[in-house]
Write a protein that binds this DNA or RNA. Structure first.
Lengths: 234, 234
DNA sequence: AGATGTATGTGTGCTGGCGAACAGAGGACG
DNA sequence: CGTCCTCTGTTCGCCAGCACACATACATCT
């Protein structure tokens, strides 16, 4: 999956911080490339780094039996590794790079050290964790009740937000994996969206043609997620 | 829903604390009855109290469109209001009393005051929050992939654990509501379980006859949840 | 050009769960 | 005692998504 490189290389979470805290983090961060398909860590792994995506984005995937299901998406509006706030050093989900781009990365030890020194940083990240939890529940219900077409539209919108580009690369197989449905289900839903002129795609290149139309057809969960983020993160 | 009153009126979370912290909390707590069907708070409400169930238990319910879905269960192994740790005073889920019994209740202001004074209390509760998040994801996947029969078995086991009784009262309608399926689906699944001599029920009185059998038929998520709790809470 | 691999489209039959509606069966209560 | 109400059982048609299988299109590499 290759995204047009995002232009704005900022992370909204970092932007919210006091300049002092942001600097503290930034000097300890290294820039890195997020390469599609790479697994940053799996459930139960000890987390080595925290990531603040600036361009790319990352899926949080829950595994069950031998299937998988995406339960969250982390882009430049958030961070990967937020559960370290809770004093547990292992990953609750598998983290899989979905959208190529860049991220800032910091070691867990540095991260925790800076975290201890800054109540304000702590405050912001705790609120982000709250948002993550809320969205987890939202996604659970969405996955249960909503049809593939609406869920696909939601996914495309969320990804577009995080990719900061109107087109990106992802195959039906992969989408099926994320949404926990068969590939054929995606093919049909994607076809419908294309016929409605909301998107266009060919061999993995997906282009969003009509955001408003997509929002209309997507389940309300897209808006609900944004609303939660806005309300809590301000 | 009326449970045989639980005999052991303890809360595992409280039991894990240092005696000092536990005392601090207990002196600020009041005993109260949990009455079936009562809503302690709804999504978005400002949380007035934190609850440590000792006998009864509470459902965390996510609402979407006009349907609902249980996304978590809080019994004497946990607490209701854990998200207050994150510095947000509103509820991310609706909290609905599922199993009659007792709970210890403390005002949010007292709770937060004590929390600030005790790093150890903080430590334990953060870990519990981590468990809650993990189970949220587990439940999301379970709800997506597993069949009603297995999910019902899981629910019964979880409830039995929290009710500390081998029988309790809950109707098919209510179970349907919790699992996000039709009542008829529950009726059929419950019938199957009964024919297999795993449970018996009549007019809402459900009795677990064969725990091991239920565990075998339930989806792996029951065990997964216990495993996570055990691993993180120790 | 040919060969191989990847991505998408289509078809057939199956099933779990849905919506709606109705029938009995047991309690509760006047 | 009869009446109402709650809880459970059953039926019918329907559909989204499933499993499996195969066909076509494009891309890339030799």
């Amino acid at each position: 999956m290759t995204f047009t490189r995002a232009v704005s290389a900022t992370n909204r979470l970092l932007d919210m911080l006091l300049p002092k805290d942001r600097e503290q983090l930034l000097v300890n961060c290294e820039h890195m490339e997020l390469n599609i398909g790479e697994v940053l860590y799996r459930v139960g792994d000890v987390i080595p780094h925290v990531y603040f995506p600036t361009g790319g984005f990352i899926s949080l995937v829950a595994s069950i039996d031998s299937t998988n299901l995406e339960v969250g998406l982390v882009g430049n509006e958030g961070m990967l590794g937020i559960t370290l706030l809770l004093g547990v050093d292992t990953a609750p989900f598998t983290a899989l790079i979905q959208g190529a781009g860049t991220a800032l990365r910091i070691s867990v030890s540095s991260f925790l050290r800076i975290l201890e020194q800054s109540p304000e940083l702590h405050r912001v990240l705790k609120r982000y964790l709250y948002v993550t939890m809320s969205q987890l529940a939202q996604t659970a219900a969405c996955t249960r009740f909503h049809l593939v077409e609406g869920r696909l539209a939601r996914w495309l919108l969320m990804s577009q937000d995080r990719a900061h580009a109107d087109h990106f690369h992802i195959t039906h197989v992969f989408l099926a994996y994320m949404l926990g449905v068969r590939r054929v289900g995606i093919t049909k839903a994607a076809n419908t969206l294309q016929q409605k002129k909301l998107i266009s795609y060919q061999r993995g290149e997906i282009r969003v043609l009509d955001r408003a139309g997509l929002e209309a057809i997507s389940c309300g969960c897209y808006k609900a997620d944004k609303e939660i983020y806005g309300r809590i993160m301000g």
